[in-house]
Amino acid sequence: MTWTTFFQQLMNGVSVGSLYALLAIGYTLVYGILGLINFAHSDVFMLGTYFAFFMIGIFLLPWWISVLIGVGLCALVGVTIERVAYRPLRNAPRISALITAVGVSFFIENLGLVTVGARPKGFPRPELMKNVYFIAGARIQGVTFWVPLISIAVLLVLFYLVYRTKLGMAMRAVSKDMETTRLMGVNVDRVILYAFALGSALAGIGGVLWACKYPQINPLMGIFPGWKAFTAAVVGGIGNVVGAMIGGFIIGLAEIMIVAFFPNLTGYRDAFVFALLIIFLLVKPSGIMGETLKEKV
């Protein structure tokens, strides 16, 4: 493999990884607070692309405004899911909440299949993403260049929110100990709603950027990215925001690099992530940044 193709693949891996990172943070925020795998998160990711798609296609809005509206709608969907489906089960057995999450996810996917159909639609990309750049002699597509930059900018805003604002402090406190935080006078329900809004907005941004990279969108497009992003959250240490980001980049790079080095294994690229998950659960189940918590009676 020449240096330029390696560099291209590296950039490619970074850009896919940054998308997994965006998506993984939504999973890890919710899991950290509620201990719930939000299966519907991957469908919010899918909805983001469709919201933007219809804003552009039907209301003929400019690309950036459509995307912003789409992301806003995603946050709204996330909050609605929490309010309608998860909150009534907050004190129910864990397995009930998980089943509900699977149900919501399947509901959105099938509603999508029924309303917009299974046939993939072409997602319109802005000119910026179609440009081609030459960096260090390597031919880099605009998408590959801009997606990680935008993602990293978004992640920086997120880190600021989580680690430097009162809301972020409340979120971290709730994930450490919900009851004590409630006693400190924090409105826990509202913090959870904000966490869902934040995570879903990130999923929406991730979805739109994903659609710029792979411009065929369909109602089931969220399943694999969502599952890999959750794997990324596990690899990074579930519940940890920085860990989710690191995990996302690891999964993205590993996936792209394995396919780059062994091109005849392309069909199995999803299986590698599974293998990685199993290995991580065997060797370091708490993840890279995770701390091992001993359950006490």
Binding site: G35, I37, R94, L98, I223, F224, W227, F230, T231, V234, I238, G267, Y268, D270, A271, V273, F274, L277, I278, L281, L282, P285, E295
Partner: peptide, 24 residues
């Protein structure tokens, strides 16, 4: 690997497994 751990790792691993079988 998953049942030794507490938490919902089984859910995510089995979900992945079901999809991977289809890929295979």
């Amino acid at each position: 690997p998953t049942l030794r751990l507490r938490g919902d790792y089984l859910a995510i691993a089995t979900f992945g497994f079901g999809e991977i079988i289809i890929v295979l």
